[in-house]
């Protein structure tokens, strides 16, 4: 079959358009296999991880594991204080990083003049996102534990984690703000709105789903961080629940780290059980993220 087309008054007959069709289809099929393989590699790695963890830890899952404090006897050990600690730390982290990050992003994206100084600022924030987490731990140790005298407390750990994820929150929020179409801003300004009115009523709500996604992903990374919390004094063996934000605390990753470095096989299996709990906590957090995002975007009538 030949295809006839008219281009600028001249009739053009394409010479056997199907000639390279077979080659293209083969390439398309090869690519779909390659792409599938890429997915498989990720899935297999995850599956192996899950399988080993579940195989080793399954027998140790019992109701008491969730509530009991750790003990020297593995059969009496639980992750109670560590779950609570993780929960509190992540709340404090979010309470600090979310508002501060959004404020910073709004300033950089909407208010700051576009000059070399703000560009420099942006590059630096991107760099900060790549700084090893242990460095933030040391920073937290210096500022919150020592200088502010919070000691080895929940608040010190939460703020240190907050500093760690702050650059990621800012960058994600900036991206979300930048994705808001300029026509929306113009519509607001055209009605005689001030910059803050436009930002508050239109730009921020439109960007909020993206901001939430970014922030909660950052929190998920934060929840698994061990190094900064070890440095700012999270305990790997703590038998009491924290009562206030200035109390000593433990968190799941640090507890897992502590158990897995013990010589007894029982504690290593217990560590596997704790990892399962940790994954469940992450899953809950991510589900919350999805629900929250849905809610917020439903309020927008796109």
């Amino acid at each position: 079959m030949s295809v006839e087309a008219t281009i600028g008054g001249t009739s053009v007959v394409a010479a056997e358009p199907a000639s390279n069709l077979r080659g293209r289809e083969v390439r398309a099929r090869i690519m779909s296999v390659v792409l599938f393989l890429g997915t498989i590699v990720a899935l297999v790695a995850l599956g192996v991880l899950l399988w080993t963890v579940i195989a080793r830890g399954w027998d140790w899952i019992r109701p008491g594991l969730f509530t009991d404090p750790p003990s020297r006897r593995p059969e009496n050990s639980g992750v109670g204080p560590a779950i609570l600690g993780t929960f509190y730390v992540i709340l404090l982290t979010a309470a600090f990083a979310f508002p501060v990050g959004i404020l910073g992003a709004i300033y950089l994206e909407e208010y700051a003049p576009q000059n070399w100084w703000t560009r420099l600022l942006r590059i630096n924030i991107s760099n900060l996102a790549g700084v090893p987490s242990i460095v933030y731990g040391l920073l937290g140790l210096g500022i919150f534990v020592e200088f502010f005298g919070f000691g080895r407390s929940l608040i010190a750990g939460g703020l240190a984690l907050g500093l760690l994820i702050l650059p990621i929150v800012i960058i994600a929020s900036q991206e979300a703000l930048r994705a808001v179409p300029p026509s929306l801003r113009e519509a607001g300004y055209g009605l005689g709105a001030t910059k803050w009115q436009v930002t508050r009523s239109h730009v921020l709500p439109a960007a909020m789903p993206g901001i939430l996604t970014g922030t909660i992903l950052a929190l998920s990374t934060g929840i698994g961080e061990t190094a900064p919390l070890l440095v700012t004094g999270a305990a790997s063996f703590l038998t009491s629940n924290p009562d206030s934000i200035f109390d000593r605390y433990s968190v799941l990753p640090v507890l897992i780290y502590g158990w897995s470095s013990r010589p007894q096989a029982e504690f290593q299996e217990l560590a596997a059980a704790a990892i399962m709990i940790m994954l469940a906590v992450l899953l809950v957090l991510n589900l919350t993220a999805i629900v929250l995002r849905r809610r917020v975007s439903r309020r927008l009538r796109w």
Partner: peptide, 16 residues
């Protein structure tokens, strides 16, 4: 801008 309103090229209602 309150006294002098504007309508833009591409319709841009708020997502409300």
């Amino acid at each position: 801008r309150r006294r002098i309103g504007m309508v833009f090229q591409k319709p841009n209602p708020f997502p409300k």
